[in-house]
Each structure stands twice: as C-alpha cells, then as structure tokens.
C-alpha cells in the first residue's frame, strides 16, 4: 500500500523511494499475520483495531522494503559494533540473598515468593 506524501521539505526522502519499491505489495501483511504477530508478542489487540494496525504496519514495512535493493552478497551480519570478546570472570557468587529486594516491586508477593496465575491444572 502506498504511503501518503508528507510535508514538502521531506518529500525528497520519499520521492524516489516510492518509485523503487517493486516488492511492496508482495510483502504486505494480511490481518491474520497481524493477529499472529500480536499473539507472538502477547499483546491483546481488539478485533476492531486490527485493520488500522495492519495499515500502519504495512506502511512501515513498505518503507523498509527498500533494503531489498542493497547488494549484501558475501557481507557478514553486524550484530554489535564493539569489537571485543565477551569478558570472562571467575565463577564466584557476586551477589545474592536479596529476596526481599527482588519481590519488593511485585504486583503480588507473599513470603519472598511471587504470586502468579495458575500455570498447571
């Protein structure tokens, strides 16, 4: 789905991008995919909000689609800009015995335990 043109001083950011988006319709997501993403994310989305959300997500995904133009053959993914090995430390207890502090902010707690909804029937 095509995005609306934004105000004039940023139109250049979008102008040629709209012409080079061959995949956008193929990659747009349907309502079921929005439902699935919401389920994966554990966010309850009311049924009546789904179409608007679908439009917003497709707007964002259509814009992201321009990454398909980049030649990334042979390029290793970059996950972190810190070029170092993860530091090792001695396997010693550094902290602990702070149960009261750990549960202090719990919505429900009793005797240093979190009270949670029943998980196993």
């Amino acid at each position: 789905m095509a995005r609306q043109v934004c105000c004039a001083d940023r139109a250049w950011l979008l102008a040629d991008e709209r012409q080079t988006r061959p995949h956008e319709s193929q990659m747009s997501i349907d309502l079921d995919t929005v439902r699935k993403a919401a389920r994966l994310a554990r966010i309850a989305i009311p049924e009546e909000r789904l179409p608007a959300l679908q439009g917003e997500l497709n707007g964002i995904l259509a814009w992201i689609e321009q990454l398909q133009e980049v030649d990334i053959s042979g390029v290793a993914p970059l996950a972190s800009t810190v070029a170092m090995q993860l530091p090792m430390r001695e396997d010693l207890v550094a902290d602990g015995f702070q149960a009261a502090a750990v549960v202090r902010n719990a919505p429900k707690a009793e005797d240093d335990f979190f009270i949670v909804p029943k998980v196993v029937e």
Binding site: I29, A37, L57, A76, P77, L78, A79
Partner: peptide
C-alpha cells in the same frame, strides 16, 4: 505496541533472513 509487533514479525519464522539478517548486513555496509 507497533514497534514490538514489527519486531515480533521480522523475527518470526520465515522472515528472519529477509528482514533481520539483511538489516544486519546493511548495517555492516
């Protein structure tokens, strides 16, 4: 919510390479 949903979608099965991996490759470029 929008950003969490986008994140859940681009990391979900079948889309990881097309989105997340590619974005990390572009990041290196």
């Amino acid at each position: 919510q929008r950003r969490i949903l986008i994140g859940a979608y681009v990391l979900s099965a079948g889309y990881y390479d097309a989105y997340y991996l590619r974005a990390q490759q572009v990041r290196r470029k």
